[in-house]
Design a protein around this nucleic acid. Structure first.
Lengths: 343, 343
DNA sequence: GCTCTATATGTAAGCGCTTACATTTATTAT
DNA sequence: ATAATAAATGTAAGCGCTTACATATAGAGC
């Protein structure tokens, strides 16, 4: 069943059929209805390849993710996919590892599939060394690139993120202003977001003229159990800390396990702030206080910006949301701004 | 940069270039090398649309998921994507809701994109009423359909799953054989897997000639907190239970929260078995005993079967793995068979 | 050296669409 | 009614590939 079959049945030329399929040129209402009826009845679907060949698009968006089985990723992909689908685009998923080479290669592969745009899911794609981001710029030369939860200033690159640095600075400030000094920032290395969190943490100390022992910023990548062990090791080195601000909920739960291992009462003797408001946070006991980074909104913003760009309209190069603290059982000093739905 | 440009530079016809791109017809080694060199140097990539038009494939596989932000899904998608990519296929992701209509529509949309096959991720796609599965059969008439974690006997449908019924039966049997009688099965309704678990549970009682109060099989769909409340309600109705076998780790953690709410010591007074071996299980305290359904292997099996089919080789209509119990802190009666890596 | 076969390459016809341009038909103004 | 204009439709040329078939070249056997 192709466009010729339809045109024959309708007694018109294929051009007319094409016109009603695309709805951009004028067709008389009568023939339009007739053709529409035939299309409905025969269940005709235009061949994407032929269409793609003519229009040079298949209405798909590439989603490039680093490691994907984690909480952040799976929710992001979910939200993005829903938003894209609502805009009549499909998502091609590509999960790279962390190595630069793989990323560049997978990105190219996505472009070879003629995606209309690429969304980089997660901030781990952005390297501090500018030259390492060349592969992103290369992609942006071909199609719009959207970065979720990261920021890179470049032509044809659009970023939707939440102000990780600011919220960490705020949270740190609350602790400091309550006289707490023995804070620890436990964050993952390899991401733009991680670097913002570090900056926010440092900034809160600096603004108050307080010294910051570099051992209090712990860059760490690993599982929950490994995070616990890491903290045990840090404590064993003689550093005292009674507060952990974590880069994500996994690390925060690692901190919670550390507190359990040390028989520290949470939140009375030991305070923990998570990040991401993931499902993990409501599994533990006490439940995790965490920072809601508005992932769902970030994703809508990202897709909204993308749709603007694809329709030739202007879009902000950066949309930044502010994060909220959700206080549950592992902290005492905060007011919950609000729980955003979802969990 | 298209095939004509390459052919010009190489001083050959486009057919020859095409032949080296596809590597199926004979080309002299000399010209092959020359063309390969030019391709490498010009960074030429054949146009997928033109290629698709000729070959009627773009090497993509559709992944249809129900609700996707959950633990099971995100891991499944991750494993599948990796396996597909390794086989030089890309994954188009489509997350449907639970409604039949949406599923059928999204499946069609996937087929319209000319995917080479469809993988139904999760067993919720299979309805007990046979006629409701017509949309799957329709799809199978066009392309191979793979079902992950579910079973449907039909032409061109291939299933990779784990024997949920058997493991639940085994686990239930262990409890029963230790004289435990006050068991509760807490499972989600809407899936093939859920129905298998129910059957396994019942079966263990039946084999021993033990009566089973129907209130002991609780069909429930909801969040962790809702699961806790549900169990509180069940207890309030006057049903005593000291063991919960859960359909997934979320429900199990709900049961754990129930035990906490009732001040029941876990595992001494109250025993809980989770399902899926998700990350949630290591967040709580005590950590969750759970059933490892070998998701990673299921996914490799699914993709392996698919690749066979796509290459015209025979593939088993059903590959079924057996599950393992992983005993952690919420049970006492089991031996861990082995932890399969990943978490 | 010549025929016969195998191997290498070229030619050209699609694949199913979109769309610029040409043509026909309907509408409006005069 | 008729010319001028707008709207509707048709014609045909791509889009960039694959591949059946035709042709040319090389290798083998005698």
């Amino acid at each position: 069943m192709n466009i010729y079959d339809i045109s024959k049945k309708a007694g018109v030329s294929i051009a007319t059929v094409s016109r009603v399929m695309n709805g951009n040129a004028s067709v008389s209402e009568k023939t339009r209805q007739k053709i529409l009826a035939i299309i409905a009845e025969t269940d005709y679907t235009p061949n994407v390849f032929a269409r793609g060949l003519g229009l040079n698009t298949m209405k798909t968006i590439g989603l490039l993710c680093a490691d994907s089985s984690d909480q952040f990723f799976s929710r992001a992909v979910y939200y993005l996919e829903r938003a894209l689908r609502a805009s009549h685009y499909d998502a091609i998923l590509s999960c790279t590892g962390m190595e630069l080479e793989t990323r560049a290669e997978y990105l190219k592969r996505l472009l070879a599939k003629k995606v209309d745009a690429v969304i980089l899911v997660g901030s781990s794609f952005i390297e501090p060394v500018a030259s390492h981001n060349q592969y992103i710029l290369d992609a942006a030369a071909e199609v719009p690139v959207i970065i979720l939860n990261g920021y890179l200033k470049a032509p044809n690159v659009y970023c939707a993120l939440c102000d990780d640095g600011d919220i960490v600075s705020q949270v740190t400030s609350v602790y400091l202003d309550h006289g707490k000094r023995d804070l620890l920032l436990l964050y993952r290395s390899d991401s733009y977001s991680g670097r913002c969190k570090l900056a926010g943490f440092k900034n809160a100390f600096a603004k108050r003229g307080l010294p910051l022992d570099p051992r209090r910023t712990v860059l760490f990548n690993g599982t929950i159990a490994q995070a616990r062990d890491k903290l045990l090791a840090v404590a064993e080195q003689g550093l005292f800390f009674d507060t952990v601000i974590a880069g994500d909920d996994e690390l925060a739960i690692g901190a919670l396990k550390y507190a359990k291992a040390r028989h520290l009462a949470v939140p009375e003797q030991f305070s923990i702030m998570g990040y991401n408001n993931s499902q993990l946070g409501v599994c533990c006991e006490p439940e995790l206080s965490t920072i809601d980074n508005q992932l769902s909104f970030c994703c809508s913003n990202a897709v909204a910006a993308l749709m603007s760009v694809l329709n030739g309209k202007p879009a902000p190069a950066k949309t930044m949301l502010s994060a909220n603290v959700i206080q549950r059982g592992t902290t005492t000093l905060f007011d919950t701004v609000r729980e955003s739905g979802g969990l």
